[in-house]
Simulated assay, not measured.
Amino acid sequence: MTPRDASDDSRWSDLDRPPLNATALRRGLVRDGGLWRAVDVVARTGSTNSDLAALAAKGEAAEGAVLVAEEQTAGRGRLDRRWTAPARSGLFFSVLLTPAEVPVSRWGWLPLLTGVAVATGLSRAAGVDTALKWPNDLLVTVGGEERKAGGILAERAGEDGVVVGVGVNVSLRADELPVPQAASLALAGAVGTDRDPLLRAVLRSLEEWYGRWREAAGDPGASGLQEAYAAGCATLGRTVRAELPGDRSLVGEAVAIDGDGRLVLATADGVQEPVGAGDIVHLRPA
């Protein structure tokens, strides 16, 4: 194969990274009575979250809309961190959800629910062991070391909606990683990096978990979500440092995920303190 010219926007400029098949994705995901109502794929955009939220604000997107980008130039993670990757090297998509049956107080479970769904779908379709770092990072193991291969960002869209964005590194090579601590499914030994079946598996898993959670009116216990998240959470049982708003930090053992989706830390002075927002640093292996 001749070297790829970065300026070449041809669909087949990198034969190792074929484009997604939007028609096949719609055929496999959009059905009567299902959650997914529209699946659109764009070649390049700044942020699928921003685009889908804007469409929802104009009344041009409804629950079940899925927007996928082959490349994001201004993808965002938590704390406004940038998320960049080569074109067609990962799954970069957002979905619009309007969980009217669920009290707003329980909507904070949506990014955790999405984490469970993504991890489950990728484990099935890619054959890669995945774990979740609270609250919204997807971890894989490369060379015996846990590394981040994906992340989730949920943002309100008007009064009755939430846009949930997902970014997963699929085929990135070691020399393409944005930071040494990052990873991809390929580096973790995925049995395949064809993004079409991976995306279908993730969205079907998300549909299943969202339906279960919504039927339970967002109850994390009754829906099985709280148990499933705890079972797949690599943070539990670890000593961690929580970097909290206001330049505070807290060190303790992560002992539970409470009913509000918060991480409960047991500190050295015997206090159990729930953490609802913050950056978590794993201080020792499980």
Score class of each variant (00 low, 15 high):
E208R: 09
V162T: 09
A174P: 01
E71L: 14
G224K: 11
L91A: 01
E176Y: 01
V264N: 02
A234H: 05
P245S: 05
Y210C: 15
E215V: 08
S89M: 03
V102W: 08
R262D: 11
G270V: 06
E155G: 06
A286I: 07
V95C: 06
W36Q: 06
A256Y: 05
D194V: 12
L177C: 00
P19M: 06
G211C: 03
A183S: 06
A157Q: 08
S184L: 02
N136C: 15
S7N: 10
L283K: 02
S7T: 13
V116D: 14
A131S: 09
R173D: 08
A188H: 12
E273G: 03
E70N: 00
T120A: 15
R82T: 15
S205W: 11
S94G: 03
L187Q: 01
V264H: 06
G261N: 06
R147W: 12
D196G: 04
L206Y: 13
A54E: 10
R147K: 11
S249P: 02
A149E: 14
A65V: 02
E101R: 15
G46S: 13
G33M: 11
A222P: 00
E159G: 12
S184I: 04
A182D: 10
A43P: 11
G158S: 07
G108I: 04
V168L: 11
V164E: 09
L263N: 01
E60L: 12
G34H: 01
D194L: 03
L185W: 10
G237W: 03
